[in-house]
């Protein structure tokens, strides 16, 4: 057989899946590892029988019903990743269930939030209108120094010195080609030292003469600036 480590793992999946199936047939409700094994096994076997990727996902999803599970297990069955051998090669399948099918009032690890957070920041917000004058989409993230973003974005860069987009951390603003998007900016925090980026500042934002030097570089390097139209 010359089984590889991955193939040996497939056998572990098969054993666990069969065990789960046997227990289910005996009328037992499945727990977390049993349910995951049953679903994973269904995906692997569907692929073996010639299913396409989307058919294998369907096989995984339909392999189990909410009523087959112990209380509180369904919400834990998210993002189950399995690599199955399809006719066109090994493929990654990730199984999720619609939220409506897995929701329960009480489950392991649940987070209960009574009210959403509001930013209590008193940072001064300014607004800029930005136009993407290139022919490809550009995205700008939360902690990027807004002054130094792509030279082909046209906006009043005077307003962007020492500023970043006022969006949740780790998110971004999309600038499709030839559209004008309005963005809120807030001052960069901390010690306000910018090292790196496009090399426009590369030092303390609030050092004497730094703003003038940076704005001069913006012009020299050919960044588009000024109100877009």
């Amino acid at each position: 057989m010359d089984l590889t480590p991955s193939e040996q793992d497939r056998l572990l999946l098969f054993t666990a899946g069969q065990l789960a199936q046997t227990r289910l047939t005996r009328g037992l409700k499945l727990n977390k590892p049993e349910a995951i094994a049953l679903i994973s096994n269904a995906v692997v076997e569907a692929a073996r029988a010639g299913a396409t990727h989307s058919q294998a996902i369907e096989a995984g999803q339909s392999s189990i019903k909410h009523s087959d599970l112990m209380p509180g297990i369904a919400p834990l069955l998210t993002g189950i990743a399995i690599e199955a051998v399809f006719d066109d090669g090994r493929r990654l399948v990730v199984i999720n269930f619609p939220q409506s099918e897995i929701s329960e009032d009480e489950y392991a690890g649940q987070v209960i939030r009574l009210e959403n957070f509001q930013s209590s920041s008193t940072a001064k917000i300014s607004k800029v209108r930005v136009k993407n004058e290139s022919n490809i989409a550009i995205s700008v993230t939360s902690h990027m120094h807004f002054l130094e973003i792509n030279p082909k974005l046209k906006f009043n860069r005077e307003l962007a010195y020492g500023m970043r987009a006022n969006i949740p951390s780790g998110t971004h603003v999309d600038f499709p080609p030839n559209q004008i998007i309005e963005v809120e900016l807030i001052p960069i925090q901390g010690d306000r030292i910018l090292i790196g980026f496009a090399g426009i500042v590369d030092g303390a934002l609030d050092a004497p003469g730094m703003r003038e030097k940076a704005m001069q570089r913006i012009i020299e390097f050919g960044y588009l600036t000024g109100e877009p139209s």
């Binding site: 209590s120 993230t141 902690h143 951390s169 780790g170 998110t171």
Partner: peptide, 19 residues
């Protein structure tokens, strides 16, 4: 800090010069 969380990954804040 709400709104300025250090986050890892593609397009996130844990990048050079930022986080």
């Amino acid at each position: 800090q709400f709104g300025s969380e250090l986050q890892m990954g593609f397009g996130k804040s844990a990048r050079d010069g930022m986080g």
